[in-house]
Design a binder for these strands. Structure first.
Length: 185
DNA sequence: GCCAACGTTGGC
DNA sequence: GCCAACGTTGGC
C-alpha cells in the first residue's frame, strides 16, 4: 500500500469498523442504508464518478486529512488509495467501480470547492481540468438545467449533497468535461 | 464558526 | 420498524 493517503477521512468513534473492506462483519445491519435503493434490485451500472476530498489541512484526532489532487499527483506513480469512506452508500458505490473508470476529483471543505481534475478509480492521477470548475458554477448549471431539463438537472452533487462518493451518468460526465472549454458562467 | 441538511443510532 | 436524538458533512 502506497504511503498514507487519506481522503475524506473522518473517524467515527462508535462503530468505527473499517472503512473499506469487510462489511461482512457488520453487526446490526446498520439500520439505514445497507443497500436500500442503490444496488438492491438492479444496479444501474455507472461508469463515471465524483469523489470528494479535502485539499486543505484539517486535523482529526491528530491526523491531517489533507489530500488534494496535487497530493495524489505527487505520490509515486501518481497513484494512491482512497480510504476513510464510511458511509454505506459511498462504500457500495466504490464496490461497483471498475479499474480504469474515470472519476472527477472534487475539492471539498475548502476555500473554493469544486472539481479540480480527473483520476482513474484505481486512484491514479490523470490530469487537471483546463480550468477549475467551482461548485458555484456547477450549481448555476444545475439550477438552470432543473428548469430547462439539461444534463445536470439530477446531478448527485446537488441532489445527494453529503455523499462523498457519487456516480455520474455519461451525460453528466461529458457535460461537466465540456465546461473546461467554456468561459466561466 | 455557524448551522442546515441529513445520515446513524438506539430505545421503544 | 418507527422516530427522536445525536453526530457529521460541508457550504457559507
Amino acid at each position: 500500500m502506497p504511503p498514507k493517503t487519506r481522503a475524506r477521512v473522518s473517524k467515527r468513534t462508535a462503530n468505527s469498523d473499517d472503512a473499506g473492506e469487510k462489511v461482512g462483519g457488520k453487526r446490526k445491519a446498520a439500520a439505514s442504508e445497507s443497500g436500500k435503493t442503490e444496488e438492491r434490485s438492479e444496479p444501474p451500472q455507472y461508469c463515471h464518478w465524483l469523489m470528494k476530498s479535502e485539499p486543505e489541512s484539517r486535523f482529526e484526532n491528530g491526523i491531517d486529512v489533507k489530500f488534494g489532487i496535487e497530493d495524489l499527483k505527487a505520490l509515486p506513480d501518481q497513484t494512491g488509495c482512497w480510504d476513510g469512506v464510511r458511509n454505506y452508500q459511498a462504500r457500495n458505490f466504490m464496490r461497483q467501480m471498475k479499474n480504469e473508470q474515470l472519476a472527477f476529483f472534487y475539492h471539498s471543505n475548502c476555500k473554493e470547492p469544486g472539481i479540480a481534475g480527473v483520476m482513474k478509480v484505481d486512484v491514479q492521477y490523470q490530469r487537471m481540468l483546463k480550468r477549475f470548475l467551482p461548485l458555484s458554477e456547477l450549481k448555476k448549471y444545475h439550477l438552470q438545467h432543473r428548469a430547462t431539463g439539461g444534463p445536470l438537472k439530477d446531478m448527485a452533487l446537488f441532489t445527494r449533497a453529503r455523499l462523498s462518493v457519487q456516480p455520474l451518468t455519461t451525460e453528466e460526465f461529458d457535460f461537466v468535461l465540456s465546461l473546461e472549454d467554456e468561459e466561466p458562467l
